[in-house]
Design a binder for these strands. Sequence first.
DNA 1: CACCAGGGTGGTT
DNA 2: AACCACCATGGT
Length: 217
Amino acid sequence: MFAAVFERLLAHYGLQQWWPADNQLEIMVGAVLVQRTVWRNAANAIARLKASGDLRTDRISALPSQRLEELIRPAGFFKVKAKRLQALCRLVAAAGGIAELERLPTQELRNTLLGVHGVGAETADAILGYAFKRPVFVVDAYARRLFGRLAYPCAVPTDDELKAGCERELKTVWRLNELHALVIAHGKASCGRVPACSRCSLASACGFARHALPASA
DNA sequence: CACCAGGGTGGTT
DNA sequence: AACCACCATGGT
């Protein structure tokens, strides 16, 4: 079922090609900056960090918080995010660098990331999928809404069910990463806040009928 | 003018 | 465990 949704979304919206970045740290920083924020604003903040030569773990860790706040201001929530970026960069330093984190198995790495202040499940999975190329699905509000509707009239899947189901069916990094991007593209392009699945564009614009989740998902 | 975007935390019930 | 307010800029 998840694979079928993926195929439909890919055919309808095309390849999304996330995540634009020069290196792994840029993706990790972007994952924090984009929290509850449009990508354009987060990208602006990243550009400012690059322009000042501060897009490095050692620089971000050592920067006076007020200076860092000013640099990332366009991303919004700048005081909160400045703390989160420093917590993340200090974890990388404590671990001995990104190359050392790379050695950890996915579950351990996920738990390590979740231990950082300001990194929750969604941000951790985005970092795992896009920066570390691990086969994980990023469950976000759009995914909950879309798959929750497609599950109707069955019970809406939990985050764990959604994540496990997608990972089991799609398996590869590029497909799971694409699915996340496609789900967001779809959420923005259509659907809105229509409560009933009958008007979800997977049923109309994408030529999709209502789907039930497998009982043991 | 109101509303929202590629969340997470801390406090309250 | 389930809410809730809060964080803040920039575009529609």
